[in-house]
Design a binder for these strands. Structure first.
Lengths: 209, 209
DNA sequence: TTTTCCTTTCACCATTCGGTGATTAATGTA
DNA sequence: TACATTAATCACCGAATGGTGAAAGGAAAA
């Protein structure tokens, strides 16, 4: 009974900070940003709320630190930098859209962050947005802009619509009745139709733009 | 001083009910659904919050009654029932998308409702959704399904993406930094590019599906 | 053992939340 | 004028909100 059973009282500042950060993630994932309240966070972490102020200064600082500690668009960055892009990015565009479409569906936390970002203009969320834009800008400039040349902006506009559509459909289907334009987004066949539509639209864009 | 200066104490049940309903609309429009609190509503209406319970029974009933009193998709219903559709709805599809795109931008209240619908599964919002689906279903069955035949579901999937994209882009630009995929959604040229993209995608859909 | 330092907890604050019983006050009627 | 009806207000409740000062408690150094 000396140093084991450390689960009772840890008395470890760094660990407690991490517990608070983890609590933010858990609440965000399971309840959404509106439930990110000091009492809730402290209770979820199993610690006193005073520690939030001791270690982070304020609730906002804690939330900010949490957001910065996460990498929400990891799926885009990783395998989206193929050295060779033989078809000028057509296959890559489709793959990225479809991957994003499924990634958002499977990532409850990302869904809540997307919703949060639409709901209140938090400064640290804006930073997140700017970061995402920066990653995207790199992709456009290195791969797509060179191919579409003077039509580069038109391609960007199309991708904006498609990405936005992928986001919205996932947010919609996880709260509402899941049927949108007569397509049931919670069934495999429904999502399959959406995926085919993405493929079709990218295909026509590369052919006709 | 008999019946004039009725602004002080109206003592009119129906008028007070309407004031409370109007207050819901004003708060929703200016602050969003998260600020729809009993005290706020009563203060905005200039009345006592007890009246909410006297006249509507509960806050939820008041909100429900307000939602049902509004016609959020009036723009879709009205001029979207042309008796003759010469080009099988191609022009109509584009026009509806572009009109919806601008309508959402100019309608702060609709934006807040869309956001609300993505945020919490309120029963009266679900009814709203079902109603919207019903209106859309009519359009699809009477105009688009007959033209696309066995490809009807594919057309629906495409329209789902495009409508969802229009929604999301507007929600995004009214809170965030307004730049999405490098397109500034708060400038005329940026929105113009998006509109061209909608036109292009519908065009290619009618040609290639 | 005693002292010191630091993590953690407890008790408390003012404010706001949704909700209600009792009361006031204005109106029409007898 | 007196009364009954009812619209509207007031005062209050328990719970939850964000936030803080003081004290407790454990560990390691003195």
């Amino acid at each position: 009974m000396k140093k084991e059973t450390a689960s009772k009282k840890s008395r470890n500042k760094e660990q407690s900070k991490q517990q608070l950060l983890d609590a933010v993630g858990e609440i965000l994932r399971t309840k959404g940003y509106s439930e990110l309240k000091v009492n809730q966070i402290a209770a979820t972490a199993g610690l006193d709320k005073k520690l939030i102020y001791n270690y982070f200064g304020s609730k906002d600082n804690l939330l900010s630190e949490y957001i910065h500690s996460q990498d929400f668009w990891s799926n885009v960055k990783q395998d989206s930098v193929p050295v060779l892009v033989p078809d000028s990015g057509k296959h890559l565009s489709t793959a990225m859209l479809l991957q994003q479409f499924d990634f958002v569906r499977d990532n409850a936390e990302l869904q809540k962050v997307l919703l949060w970002r639409l709901s209140e203009p938090q400064p640290f969320l804006q930073q997140l947005t700017e970061n995402q834009e920066k990653v995207g800008e790199q992709l456009f400039q290195s791969i797509f802009d060179p191919h579409f040349k003077e039509k580069a902006l038109d391609y960007r506009a199309i991708m904006a619509i498609l990405v936005a559509g992928a986001y919205y459909l996932n947010l919609y289907s996880s709260v509402n009745g899941s049927v949108f334009c007569g397509i049931d987004l919670n069934t495999d066949s429904g999502r399959g139709k959406i995926q085919e539509a993405f493929s079709f639209l990218v295909d026509k864009t590369y052919n006709g733009l």
